[in-house]
Design a protein around this nucleic acid. Structure first.
Length: 391
DNA sequence: ATGTAC
């Protein structure tokens, strides 16, 4: 052993980053991949083309290990993106935006017992966690009404029941407070160490995954009802934060979607299309594909640079003609399309590395982030005219 | 990304 590495006792796992030279990957994110590779039991780390630095662990990575590390998945266990077809009369985005319900306000099982969205609940609420149901959360989460744009694979789109011009709801949300509670319980006892009882962690983890899937259905149902449409089942719904037992090991996904023969929506930004892709990633990619465009700037940089570069007005009405509902100015800047990598480049990298095939794009019409109180008075007046209470 | 503390 060389004298430069006196403490080295086990070799690092392999690291593969699936990005072309033209894709900007922050060196901090690659360094985080190598830090993860050095963990006990780590077998292989695959960085997706949307790789960027996270808190302690990289985002946009799939990490295979013989030990289970809860911090690699993070607090939003079960976060994912679902696509729901919706049949709706087309109208100006501003008019549709004004009809979105308040998705910061949770559905209360008692007080809101008569809300029609509950129809999607089949059985008990996972983990009995009744707080925060039907809320979208913050950060990069959103509920979006979009239109199917370019269709690259008509056969695959047809199997999903999608054609150009069809409307869909895209829901990106996770397990809210439940996943955070599960990670915190582990961290308070074991820090960033592996789970001493993986089955116990996985039992709680699986509940959070189920809760996240239920919440995406509740969100879609709330919005569908508010827009006067019938709720539907999702045609695509994949988690990008979870642990999967695979080949006898623990495959941790953090901002990486399952890419083994499944369809995944790779989210663009609030001003660009998203790409529905068919994944066919192999072992070198840890059977995973990218989950979105990936941040190009930290939130702090996006806020500072965005305020110099954009007006609030142009962020609320995007280049593709869509409307962003976001009463939180800081979040609007943090989530500006220019704070993200180009989705076309991320998808091109997936294609070039034979990880996925594009099926179609979805182009935003209305992206809901958090209530915009400026819009509320008009909505309330309209609802009062129709004899409805605010929901 | 989160609930909570500042």
């Amino acid at each position: 052993m060389s004298p430069q590495h006196p403490a080295q006792h086990s070799p690092s796992a392999s690291v593969t980053v699936f990005a072309s030279p033209g894709s900007w990957i922050e060196s901090d994110a690659v360094a985080q991949c190598h830090q993860v590779a050095a963990l006990d039991g780590m077998v292989h780390v695959a960085g997706m083309p949307d790789l960027h630095p996270g808190k302690g662990a990289p985002i946009g990575a799939a990490m295979m290990s013989t030990l289970l590390y809860p911090f690699l998945v993070g607090s939003d266990i079960g976060c994912g993106i679902a696509v729901f077809p919706i049949r709706l009369r087309r109208a100006a985005p501003e008019r549709i935006a004004a009809r979105f319900p308040d998705l910061d306000r949770a559905l209360d099982p008692d007080r809101d017992a008569d809300d029609p969205a509950w129809a999607v609940l089949d059985g008990e609420v996972p983990a009995g966690h009744a707080e925060g149901l039907g809320t979208v959360g913050r950060g990069n989460h959103f509920v979006e009404l979009a239109v199917v744009g370019t269709v690259f694979e008509p056969g695959a789109a047809d199997r999903l029941g999608l054609a150009a011009g069809d409307l869909v709801l895209v829901v990106h949300s996770g397990s809210r407070g439940l996943g955070e509670r599960i990670l915190r319980a582990h961290t308070e006892a074991y820090g960033a160490g592996p789970a001493p009882d993986p089955a116990a962690y996985l039992a709680a983890h699986d509940e959070a995954v189920r809760w996240g899937a239920l919440n995406r259905r509740l969100l879609a149902a709330r919005v569908a009802h508010a827009l006067g449409a019938e709720p539907t089942e999702p045609v695509v719904d994949q988690c990008h934060n979870l642990v999967e037992i695979r080949d006898g090991g623990y495959l941790h996904r953090k901002g990486a979607a399952p890419g083994d023969g499944r369809d995944v929506l790779v989210a663009g930004t609030r001003g660009t299309p998203s790409y529905l892709v068919s994944g066919h990633a192999g072992p070198e990619a840890n059977h995973s594909v990218a989950h979105g465009a990936g941040r190009k700037m930290s939130r702090a940089d996006a806020l500072r640079r965005g305020k110099a570069k954009h007006t609030v007005q142009e962020l609320r009405r995007t280049p593709v003609g869509s409307v962003v509902v976001c009463g939180d100015r800081q979040l609007l800047f943090e989530e500006a399309p220019t704070a993200y990598k180009r989705i076309e480049q991320v998808v091109a990298d997936l294609v070039d590395h034979d990880l996925a095939t594009p099926v179609c794009t979805t182009v935003p019409l209305v992206t809901y982030k958090t209530p915009d109180l400026r819009a509320a008075p008009a909505r309330d007046r309209r609802d009062q005219r129709r004899g409805r209470s605010r929901s």
